[in-house]
Design a protein around this nucleic acid. Structure first.
Length: 256
DNA sequence: ATGGCTTGAGTGTCAAGA
């Protein structure tokens, strides 16, 4: 089973790239973030024609998450239960016996800002919920744009980014609390190239100079981690015309 | 230098991203 995550930074703009990517890699499930549309602007028909059903939790202009899957998705959950939040950042569903949690973590803007406080509260709520979810669903994967670079090796310039947003100690501690639930960073279970990143700033030729951060992740419960055969970042879509600033991350679970 | 692009909204130019 192949599962993947991609922050597309507007599905309307990126739909042709998403369709091409689905045809090329044929994942069993693809989690999308920043669809930036309500349901009425969501390309259900185009995706269905490509062989994918879609579940969407969207809003106008900002945020928005979706799970695309070849097989039926059941037990759909939108948003974090008991966390009052108008921002559409979470959708979860079960596909082929795997609980997929697709999340667009808050950016946080700047350490100490109101948005930073919101990010930390959101992280606490997500972690609390996933603790319960793992009891019900031992085969669980958390995929998405975490907006956290977990370690200095996930940052092109750790000195410049020290204690800055996406890299601050409280954010990294929140990431660690997710791993303490038993969730393992699939990417780090395998040998990877030095300076592997999943996001590059549109400005200053960030991609060409590989000035990036690794902030998009796939975390796996123990049962799934034991079956994980591979995990990689696909930089190819970032080379295209009008790319998303994020690259997809994919993982291979078990046989097939 | 808090910029540098890109998007959506909306038709000015700004908020937000990371």
């Amino acid at each position: 089973m192949k599962i993947a995550t991609w922050n597309v930074n507007s599905l309307k703009v990126r739909l042709p790239q998403v369709l091409d990517w689905l045809a090329l890699h044929q994942p069993d499930a693809l989690c999308l973030q920043e669809t930036k549309t309500e349901d009425k602007g969501f390309p259900f028909a185009e995706l269905e024609a490509a062989g994918y059903r879609a579940l969407h939790n969207g809003q106008k202009t900002y945020n928005g998450v979706a799970i695309l899957s070849r097989n039926e998705a059941t037990d759909v959950q939108r948003d974090i239960p008991e966390f009052d939040d108008p921002q559409k950042r979470v959708i979860a569903a079960t596909v082929a016996g795997v609980r997929l949690v697709c999340a667009y973590f808050p950016n946080g803007q700047a350490v100490g800002s109101d948005k930073y406080e919101y990010k930390l509260r959101w992280l606490a709520a997500l972690t609390h919920w996933l603790g319960q979810e793992l009891v019900r669903h031992p085969r669980l994967a958390l995929l998405g744009d975490f907006n956290i670079a977990p370690e200095d090796r996930d940052v092109h310039d750790p000195v410049a980014w020290k204690e800055q947003i996406l890299c601050s100690t409280p954010e990294r501690e929140a990431f660690t609390r997710l791993t303490q639930l038993g969730l393992a960073d699939a990417f780090r279970r395998f040998e990877q190239p030095e300076r592997s990143f999943s996001w590059w700033d549109y400005r200053m030729m960030g991609f060409r100079r590989n000035l990036g951060l690794r902030i998009d992740h796939i975390l796996l419960s123990p049962a799934l981690a034991a079956d994980c055969r591979a995990c990689a970042i696909d930089k190819e879509p970032r080379r295209l015309e009008r790319p998303s600033d994020h690259a997809p991350v994919m993982a291979e679970i078990g046989a097939d």
